[in-house]
Simulated assay, not measured.
Amino acid sequence: MFTSRLSRQSHPWLADHVVRGEVLLPGTAFLELAVRAGDEAGCDRVEELTLAAPLVLPEHGGVRLQLRVGAADENGRRAFTVASRPEDADGGPWDQHASGILGPGAAPVAFDASVWPPAGAQAVDLSGLYEGMADGGYAYGPVFQGLRAAWRRGDEAFAEVALPAGTEGTGYGLHPALLDAALHVTAVNGMPHGVVPFSWEEVSLHASGASAVRVRVTRTGEESVAVAVTDSEGLPVASIGSLVLRAASAADTRVSAGDALFRVDWVPVEPVVPVVGSFVEVGSLAEVPGEV
C-alpha cells in the first residue's frame, strides 16, 4: 500500500493542468505513481495502466491517495489500483481512478536522437498551438506548455520539450508535466488538439530527473501512438509501447464520487392556512347498505 496527499497548494504545478474548467490530476501523474510503486515492488515495467475516472483537485484542501499493489503471480506480474477520497472525508468511500499491471522486463528505447533534427523531418510552426487548445477547453498553464520545437516525417512527430525555469525534474522519474507536454506534439501529426491519456501499455523508465527531453511520437492507430523519449544527448529516458489518447468531454470532468450525487436542498412550499369550522365523522359506504 502506498499513500499520499495531493493538493493545489502542496503541488502548485498541478494547478496548471485545467481541462474543461477543472484542475485534473494529469494521466502522466498516474503513470509516475505506477512507475514509483513498481520500483518498490521489483517491477521495472508498467505493463498496463487504464484510467477509469478523472481526479479533480479541489480549490481548497486536498485529497488522500492510495495505490494498492497485489501479490506477484508466477511471472512476477502484479495488479494495482489507484483510488482517492477528500481529505476531510470521515471514513467515506474511496473512488477508483485507475488500474493496471506491473511487471518485470523493461523494454529498450529504439530511438536514435543523436542526429537532431531527424533526417528528412520537416519543421512545424507551433504558433497558436496552446491558444487553440485553450479555446477547446484545455487551458494549460506555463508548466504544461513545454513544447519548444516540433518536426514531422510521415506518421512520426518529433519534439523538443523542456520544463520552464524554476521547475525541475529532480525528484521525479519523469516529471508528469514534461511528459504531458511531450504528448502535445500529437497535434501536428493528424490527431485532434487537446486529447488526454486514456490507457498505457509497455511503459519503461530508463533514467530519472530529466528537465528537457527529445521525443518521437509515432501514430499507430486512429487514437493510439508509440512514444520514445531521450535526454538532450540522445540517451534513453523512457519508452511507451502504446498509448491511447482521447478527448475529454465536460461530463468526464465531473466528480464521480458516490456522495457527490447527493446534496441537501430545501424546497419552498406554500403555507397551509388553517380552516375554522365544524367537522363531522362520516362512516364508510359499507356501513350504509343500499345508498350511494
Rank of each mutant, 00 (worst) to 15 (best):
H184V: 06
G190F: 06
P164I: 03
D155Q: 07
V188E: 11
D155H: 07
L174Y: 00
H175Y: 13
A182E: 01
V161R: 00
L178A: 08
D155L: 08
L174D: 14
V188S: 10
G190T: 12
E168A: 10
V195I: 01
G194R: 06
A165K: 13
Y172T: 02
P176V: 05
G169A: 11
R153G: 12
D180V: 01
D180W: 00
Y172G: 02
P176K: 03
A162C: 04
T170F: 09
D155W: 00
H193N: 14
T170I: 06
G169C: 14
V188H: 07
E160G: 13
P192F: 03
A159C: 08
N189K: 09
A149L: 01
A187M: 07
N189G: 12
G166M: 04
E168Y: 08
A177Y: 04
E168W: 15
E168D: 13
V161G: 11
G169R: 07
A165V: 11
G169P: 09
A181R: 04
L179I: 07
V195E: 02
A149I: 01
A187L: 06
T170S: 13
G171V: 15
Y172V: 03
H184M: 03
A157L: 05
N189I: 14
L174E: 09
T170D: 15
P176W: 03
G194A: 10
A177W: 01
T167M: 10
F158I: 14
D155C: 06
L174H: 06
N189Q: 15
G171K: 14
P164T: 02
E168L: 08
G169E: 06
A162Q: 10
G173V: 05
A181H: 00
R153A: 15
A157R: 00
G154T: 13
W151T: 09
T186H: 11
G194P: 09
F158K: 03
R152Y: 15
T186A: 06
A181W: 00
V161C: 12
A150Y: 00
A149F: 06
W151Q: 11
A165W: 10
G166N: 04
G154I: 11
A150P: 00
